[in-house]
C-alpha cells in the first residue's frame, strides 16, 4: 500500500461479491457500495442521496444500479443520476489478483 494522497483500500476478495450484485463495506469511516457488474467492478457511496436507500442491495446492470427503495438509477462509473435528483460519489476500483482495491474520491460532504 502506498501512502500517497489517495490511499487504495483492500476492500474485499473477488469471491465476496456474487456476479451482478453489490455489497457494502466501511472504508475510512465511509460506507461504500462495491459492485461486480457485467461491465466490470465499480464503487459508489452506499447511501442513495434521495432517502438513504442501500444501493448495494440494488439491481445492477452493465453500467447502472437501481436503488431498491424508489428506483432512482445511477451510472456506476460516474455516479451521475440517470433518473432524477442528485448524483452519488463514485470511487476508483482496481482488481489485483483475487483482491479488490478501492481508492476513495475526495469526500465532498464528509461521510454520512
Amino acid at each position: 500500500m502506498s501512502t500517497a494522497a489517495a490511499l487504495a483500500h483492500d476492500a474485499c476478495s473477488v469471491e465476496d461479491i456474487p456476479l451482478g450484485e453489490g455489497r457494502a463495506v466501511t472504508l475510512d469511516g465511509r460506507r461504500i457500495a462495491i459492485f461486480r457488474a457485467g461491465g466490470g467492478w465499480y464503487a459508489l457511496d452506499a447511501a442513495c442521496p434521495h432517502r438513504g436507500g442501500p444501493l448495494a442491495d440494488g439491481i445492477v446492470c452493465d453500467r447502472a444500479v437501481i436503488c431498491p427503495l424508489h428506483d432512482r438509477r445511477f451510472d456506476l462509473q460516474s455516479g451521475s443520476a440517470l433518473t432524477t435528483g442528485n448524483a452519488v460519489a463514485a470511487h476508483a476500483v482496481e482488481v489485483r489478483g483475487a483482491r479488490v482495491f478501492v481508492t476513495l474520491a475526495a469526500a465532498e460532504r464528509g461521510a454520512a
Binding site: P18, E21, C61
Partner: peptide, 27 residues
C-alpha cells in the same frame, strides 16, 4: 442490460416459461 429495470420481469418470465426448471440467477 441497458437500464436493468426489466430484470425482475425477465426473471419471472424465464421461470414461468420453463415451469421453474430454469437456471436461477439471483442478480
Amino acid at each position: 442490460r441497458e437500464c436493468g429495470a426489466c430484470k425482475p420481469a425477465l426473471a419471472y418470465l424465464v421461470s414461468e416459461v420453463c415451469a421453474n426448471q430454469h437456471r436461477e440467477e439471483r442478480d
